[in-house]
Amino acid sequence: MREKILAIIEKNSRIDLADLAAMLGESEAAVANEIADMEQENIICGYHTLINWEKTGDEKVVALIEVKVTPQRDQGFDSLAERIYQYSEVESVYLMSGAYDLTVILEGKTLREVAQFVSNKLAPLDSVLSTATHFVLKKYKDHGTIMCDRHEDERMLITP
C-alpha cells in the first residue's frame, strides 16, 4: 500500500483522504495510519506546492551551481554539504558522480544576491576548490509537471 500511496500523493498531496482510500480500496483509517507512519519515519519529508513563479509578480532567480571540493578526512562530503545546506537560500544540495562533486540549487531575488552568495559564502569555504554558476532561464518542466498551459480535453463528448 505504501508504494501506491506515495505514487499518488507525490503528484497530488492535497488529495482527500476519503478519495485516496477509495482509489486504493482501503479504509480511511488504514491509509491515514500508513501516512502518519511514513511521516514519522521521514519517508514523507514534507508537502509542497509547485508554483509557476513566472506567472506571479515576484522576481526570482534560480541558479544551479557546480561545486568541486576536496573531501575531508573521516567526513567525506557530508560535513561540507551540511555547511552549505544550512543556508536558507539554498534550495537543494546533491552529491554527484562525475566531473564535479556537489550540485547546489539556489534561489535568490536578484542576480546580485545569488552572485554575492557564491562569492561571499560558498567559494570561500575551506574545501571548495571551484564553482561554476548557471542561471536558470526558463523552467519547462519541474517535479514531473509540465509548466506551460495545460491542454484541453479534445475528445468528443460521447464515443462508443
Binding site: D153, R155, M156, L157, I158, T159, P160
Partner: peptide
Amino acid sequence: FDIVSEMDGAISLGVGEPD
C-alpha cells in the same frame, strides 16, 4: 451525441477512449 453537442457547458463521462 447530437443532443449533448447542442448543450453548452455539459460535462461528459461518455467517452470510449483513454484520457
